[in-house]
Computed example of a mutant assay.
Amino acid sequence: MSRSWVQEAIQRIERDFQRSSDTHLVSVELPAMPQVQLYIKDESTHPTGSLKHRLARSLFLYGLCNGWIREGISIVEASSGSTAVSEAYFARMLGLPFIAVMPRNTSPAKVAQIEFYGGQCHFVDNPAHVYVEAERVAQERNGHYMDQFTYAERATDWRGNNNIAESMFQQMRSERHPVPRWIVVGAGTGGTSATIGRYIRYQGHETQLCVVDPERSVFYDYFHDRDATITNHRSSDIEGIGRPRVEPSFVAGVIDRMIRVPNAASYAGMRFLERLVGRKYGASTGTDFYGAIQLACEMTARGEAGSIVTLACDPGERYLDTYYNDAWLHANGYDIAPYEAQLTRALSKGRWSSEGLCESFAHHASANTPVAVPA
């Protein structure tokens, strides 16, 4: 292995990092809840347009420093899209071939971005097969399988070093409530929630971490039951978060609360947020927003004052053919109107209510019904 090539590769990534500025922390006013301030950390402004840019950079540095990534080697990843886009960016920077193994229903916009950065897309029909197929492709090409689902929680220094948690708290220093009452994130690999949860504890903050989980993801059930064998044969329909199995990087012990969010609520949430801030975001951001508003209403009901920080994970322009397409929603059986009405009531009255939701929707939103099936 050429040590000089590895050192130059690390320097290229570090120089790219130095050319980048931090992402914005956007304040969202909640007039009916004046004692609660909501902030959204806009991760869609990274060079590759998503929160996963941080993860991809960390994974490449981790692989280089471990001696796994070498000159000329093929990089292979199992990804539903955004991680693959970011990894394709860094692979091109280092002159390495990149292959993304992903579900066939991944949004066309993400596929186009991966190909824009020189990556190849290898599709599977069953989302649960991406892991095995990625390993097979890596072995076939004598390449390196990045395996974000195993290494996400350890590739990032959770104690600081300008990680996303440290960035949040630094940006909040001058706010009215500088130490957030809640931080709300989704989980795909679990790396972001692990980093934030560990940082909160390491720094001794009173902040609590809430992870929002979409339909058909097993994380919520694992959080409560600790059964690591639980699986589901279907994808979550929320690209980037929710998994059909318990991922090695998902660290339940650093999470204070989980909320299961119906997919229709996620789609309603991202559209509602667009009307508030004037920007389109993806469905994982809608999931975050929906959970954050629920927590804001609960704080208001208890007479609490404080701040909530959540994430905008990627831009909505990647989903114009799907989540922002009414025909797609109808074809997939999603009715977002009840959730848009729920969010409207919450923002206008400061109350969280299931009024207008049918019984099955309300039950789903209360997150008491497991959706996974034993392996």
Rank of each mutant, 00 (worst) to 15 (best):
S2A: 10
Q7D: 11
E8D: 15
E8R: 06
I10C: 07
I10T: 06
R12G: 07
E14D: 14
R15G: 06
D16W: 02
F17Y: 15
Q18Y: 11
R19Y: 07
S21C: 06
L25T: 09
L30D: 09
A32R: 01
M33E: 09
Q35A: 12
D42Q: 06
S44E: 06
T48R: 01
S58A: 12
F60P: 01
F60D: 12
Y62W: 15
I69P: 00
E71K: 04
S74W: 03
S74H: 13
I75P: 00
A84W: 01
A84S: 13
V85I: 13
A88Y: 04
A88C: 11
F98E: 05
R104A: 15
A109M: 09
A112Q: 08
I114V: 15
I114T: 08
E115I: 12
F116Q: 09
Y117S: 08
H122W: 02
H122T: 13
N126E: 15
V130Q: 06
A134N: 03
E135Y: 14
E140N: 01
M146W: 10
M146T: 13
D147E: 12
D147Y: 02
E153G: 02
D157S: 03
R159L: 09
G160S: 04
N163V: 03
F169L: 14
Q170V: 09
M172I: 09
M172Q: 12
R173A: 14
P178W: 03
G186T: 12
T189H: 05
G190K: 05
S193H: 05
A194S: 15
A194D: 04
R198H: 04
Y199I: 13
I200G: 00
T207Y: 00
T207V: 12
Q208S: 02
D213H: 15
R216M: 11
V218Y: 00
V218Q: 02
F223I: 07
F223K: 03
D227S: 08
I230P: 01
H233W: 08
I241H: 10
R245L: 04
E247I: 07
E247S: 01
P248D: 07
F250W: 11
I259N: 06
P262H: 04
P262Q: 05
A265S: 07
F272H: 05
F272K: 04
R275T: 14
L276P: 00
L276W: 14
V277R: 04
D288I: 08
Y290A: 08
A296Y: 07
M299R: 01
M299Y: 07
G303V: 06
E304A: 05
I308D: 02
L311W: 01
L311T: 09
A312F: 03
P315L: 08
G316D: 02
G316M: 03
R318V: 10
Y324W: 08
Y324C: 08
A327S: 12
A327V: 11
G333C: 10
G333S: 14
Y334H: 13
P338H: 12
Y339P: 00
L343H: 06
A346R: 02
S348H: 14
G350H: 00
S353F: 12
S353E: 06
G356V: 10
L357P: 00
N368H: 09
N368T: 15
